[in-house]
């Protein structure tokens, strides 16, 4: 494990290419990213500050902060950064690194729960099923949500890759460990 920057370049580089990740160093802290961030408008998330913290290797502070997960990946900052820093992709890389070490926000993990339970991040609900019936389609779309044997295969993939362990999933309750029925941890 090197510095956070080095890990980001190594890990994110495999997906986006090293140069893509190395743009982080060109940041001049102009603040345009935070200025346009829809999320930052309503939360304590400060895009620019996150990058400064990454450059100063404040790994623990970043991994432990809830703000890391408030980015909605809208790509506004990405479009506007004057130095061409690949902002959103860098944030996603940091999130991946954090998740590997067991830091992942509950709402993000809940997406994982839905995938494990239904194979959908956003499962079909009653309203969608009504709509499908109304236009003459089968109520359930032909996905693993409908076909249980396919769902089992999805779940096998996630078990094998260790995703379930990463999000701390409990196969008995089919929910996050330590979560009560009301969804509270």
């Amino acid at each position: 494990m090197g510095t956070l920057y080095e890990d980001m370049v190594a890990y994110g580089g495999e997906v986006f290419g090293k140069e893509h990740m190395e743009t982080l160093r060109e940041c001049v802290q102009c603040g345009k990213c935070t200025g346009g961030c829809p999320s930052g408008r309503n939360t304590a998330f400060r895009t620019r500050k996150l990058f400064q913290m990454a450059l100063t290797d404040m790994r623990e502070e970043i991994f432990n902060s809830p703000e890391l997960w408030f980015c909605s990946t809208c790509y506004t900052c990405y479009e506007r950064c004057p130095k061409g820093v690949k902002t959103t992709d860098l944030i996603r890389t940091i999130r991946n690194l954090a998740a590997k070490e067991g830091h992942m926000s509950v709402p993000h993990r809940m997406i994982g729960v839905y995938v494990l339970k239904t194979s959908h991040a956003v499962p079909l609900g009653p309203a969608q099923m009504e709509l499908r019936k109304a236009v003459g389609l089968d109520e359930m779309a032909p996905t693993a949500q409908k076909y249980k044997d396919q769902l089992e295969q999805v779940q096998t993939i996630f078990k094998t890759t260790g995703y379930d362990a990463m999000i701390d999933f409990d196969w008995d309750t089919m929910n996050l460990k330590g979560m009560d029925k009301g969804g509270k941890k």
Binding site: Q29, T34, G35, G36, G40, R46
Partner: peptide
Amino acid sequence: VRAEDTMLGEP
């Protein structure tokens, strides 16, 4: 005009 005041760290 929306921006971040980077010295305060606040939008």
